[in-house]
């Protein structure tokens, strides 16, 4: 759903911060952004899955993106942000530190992920680009889910 990278037309991305790093996803996959509310933990699930919260009556699983990328994470506080994303027909909450920017991206500016990045990061990062001297990694959110499905018994 976030394909068409070859399309030269500019598209809008939403940038967010985890720790010191900046990432972004296609704005079209983000449905809403809300503050952190305590999640109900689920038994026998990976540690990056913070649990589930109530999104207007629907049960929304929360993925701690930082933990998913193998970054250091702290306990979430009220200042943390949940991006509600529509991924492969499901609603998933992505826990990040803060939403920082909305970026107009020219596809041509994206460079392939350099080899220096860790395995976890490279698994989700489709490419990197620079905006005003900041380095931003482009995330493909659909890659976050297959692992969840693979574990389904």
């Amino acid at each position: 759903m976030t394909e068409a990278l070859t399309n030269a037309a500019a598209r809008e991305l939403i940038a967010f911060r985890i720790g010191e790093q900046e990432f972004c996803v296609d704005i079209m996959s983000v449905r809403e952004i809300r503050g952190w509310t305590p999640a109900t933990p689920l038994p026998r699930t990976p540690s990056y899955l913070k649990g589930v919260i109530n999104l207007r009556g629907a049960v929304l699983p929360i993925v701690d993106l930082g933990a998913r990328f193998g970054l250091r994470t702290a306990e979430p506080t009220a200042r943390h942000v949940i991006m509600v994303a529509h991924i492969a027909g499901r609603l998933v909450g992505l826990l990040v530190d803060a939403v920082s920017d909305i970026i107009q991206l020219d596809e041509g500016a994206v460079q392939p992920t350099p080899d220096v990045a860790s395995e976890e990061v490279r698994a989700f990062v489709k490419g990197i680009f620079a905006v005003d001297g900041r380095l931003i990694s482009l995330i493909d959110p659909s890659l976050i889910l297959p692992a969840m499905e693979a574990e389904a018994a």
């Binding site: 026998r44 629907a58 049960v59 929304l60 499901r90 609603l91 389904a152 018994a153």
Partner: peptide, 8 residues
């Protein structure tokens, strides 16, 4: 509907 079955 948004996640999967969880044992227990």
């Amino acid at each position: 509907s948004n996640f999967r079955q969880v044992e227990g």
